[in-house]
């Protein structure tokens, strides 16, 4: 369960006096477990900022935020790593570790969670095969195309079977067939109980996969349907 109650976000001003402007205002909504939601809105509306709140990269400046049943505003800092391990994130800019192979990048969440290496090997090989990168297992990100990197990023986000999956423009570098495959994976995960939130401005994709959406404009939630 994810719940925003009157959440506002203001990025900390760097090197500037005074307060920086609020980029999200009075956001309130609730996502039950296992739902699929689009997050839509023009560029600069605050989609990425909203997702960053959800995957605990920033803390709300005001309001109450509950992620997977934990009140994030009240939880001690040391409780957050365990919570983050239950959240999968596909970043707009992938954020793969350049000095690690595709295999090691995908294996990272499992190893951080301390899974046995035998299980890591099996799961990661299977996952990379599923995203069509069985032959690129030992390749480094710099040796992969944008689409291949995006698929590695997707594999890393879902490898630990997260309870909440957050994807920021996950199809930007994928062709239509790959995007379709990703959508099937996301629907399958949400059917198995994962809450899925996907930010996009790929209207054709949204049209092909109708689902409830959160609409953001100028940092305000203008629709939830």
């Amino acid at each position: 369960m994810v719940r925003f109650e009157g959440v506002g976000l203001r990025y900390r001003a760097i090197g500037r006096a005074g307060r920086s402007p609020e980029v999200l205002h009075d956001i309130s909504f609730t996502l039950p477990d296992g739902v699929f939601r689009w997050l839509l809105g023009p560029s600069g509306a605050g989609k990425t900022s909203l997702l960053r709140l959800m995957y605990l990269a920033v803390a709300p400046s005001r309001g109450h935020l509950t992620v997977l049943g934990t009140d994030v505003s009240a939880a001690p800092r040391r409780a957050l790593p365990r919570l983050r391990r239950r959240i999968g994130v596909v970043f707009q800019d992938f954020r793969l570790l350049p000095h690690l192979s595709a295999f090691d990048n995908v294996a990272l969440p499992l190893r951080i969670s301390g899974r046995p290496e035998g299980q890591v090997r099996a799961d990661v090989t299977e996952m990379l095969r599923w995203v069509g990168l069985a032959k690129r297992i030992e390749a480094y990100p710099s040796q992969l195309s944008g689409g291949e990197q995006q698929r590695v990023a997707i594999a890393r986000a879902v490898i630990a079977r997260p309870s909440l999956l957050v994807a920021d423009e996950p199809t930007g570098n994928l062709d239509d067939a790959q995007a379709e495959r990703l959508m099937q994976l996301l629907h399958e995960m949400s059917r198995l109980g994962t809450t899925v939130v996907v930010a996009t401005h790929n209207d054709r994709l949204v049209a092909r996969h109708p689902a409830p959406a959160l609409l953001l404009e100028h940092g305000r939630l203008t629709g939830h349907h």
């Binding site: 990269a57 790593p81 983050r84 391990r85 994130v89 954020r95 570790l97 990272l108 969440p109 951080i112």
Partner: peptide, 16 residues
């Protein structure tokens, strides 16, 4: 810094 932010985001503890 970038790598630490990523690993931190994946749920690595400070101790890790």
């Amino acid at each position: 810094r970038a790598a630490i932010e990523i690993v931190h985001g994946l749920g690595a503890t400070d101790g890790y």
